[in-house]
């Protein structure tokens, strides 16, 4: 559908563990690798081997720390911080809808995302931004960019500014100037 603006270099799980145990000063952000295929996307919500559960809008989603930590800097920090969350088995996710959070997990597990008319792209972008999932944020920006119109352009301008959506902001400004 829409081409990803960037390609992301592969980072294997093993490397990340090594970085965390010995090279603790390595602060390179983990980037999502190429799509890792359908097998893992089936694992979203799978209770088999699950070691963490998210509670979103009162509903529980089973997940796997090892996948999340290896695919997201944010979750790596959550699980390895040594703070409270690293000992929890359930984490409450506030301010995000179940659908949006499910999309986030889908993307983290598979590296792919299917955005449909039902998808709340705006919320997805906000969540991706907060959880530091840049490739997903970038996908959202691209989708929004082709849907700019006279009715939403001003709102989008303000929106993109607040959430540091630079790519979208450029498109909006371009649209307005035209």
């Amino acid at each position: 559908m829409i081409q990803m603006a960037e390609r992301f270099s592969a980072t294997s799980f093993q490397q990340i563990l090594v970085q965390n145990s010995s090279e603790q000063n390595s602060q390179k952000p983990i980037k999502l690798s190429e799509p890792i295929g359908g097998e893992f996307s089936q694992a979203v919500g799978q209770e088999l081997f699950s070691d963490i559960a998210f509670i979103v809008e009162g509903k529980t989603i089973a997940a796997h720390k090892i996948i999340l930590a290896s695919r997201s800097d944010y979750y790596r920090a959550v699980f390895l911080s040594g703070m409270r969350e690293s000992r929890e088995t359930e984490l409450i996710v506030p301010d995000i809808t179940y659908a949006t959070f499910n999309d986030i997990l889908q993307f983290l597990y598979s590296g792919e995302i299917l955005i449909t008319d039902e998808t709340d792209v705006i919320s997805l972008l906000v969540a991706a931004d907060e959880l530091a999932i840049d490739p997903l944020k970038s996908r959202c920006e691209s989708v929004i960019s082709v849907n700019i119109d006279l009715g939403n352009c001003l709102d989008l301008l303000q929106f993109s500014d607040i959430y540091f959506a630079h790519q979208l902001k450029e498109h909006v400004i371009h649209f307005i100037l035209k």
Binding site: I2, D117, T119, I122, N147, N152, D155, L156, I162
Partner: peptide, 13 residues
């Protein structure tokens, strides 16, 4: 490709 979708952009009045 140029499929239009309804965006629910929050209004920051």
């Amino acid at each position: 490709m140029s499929r239009k979708m309804i965006l629910r952009v929050p209004k920051f009045q």
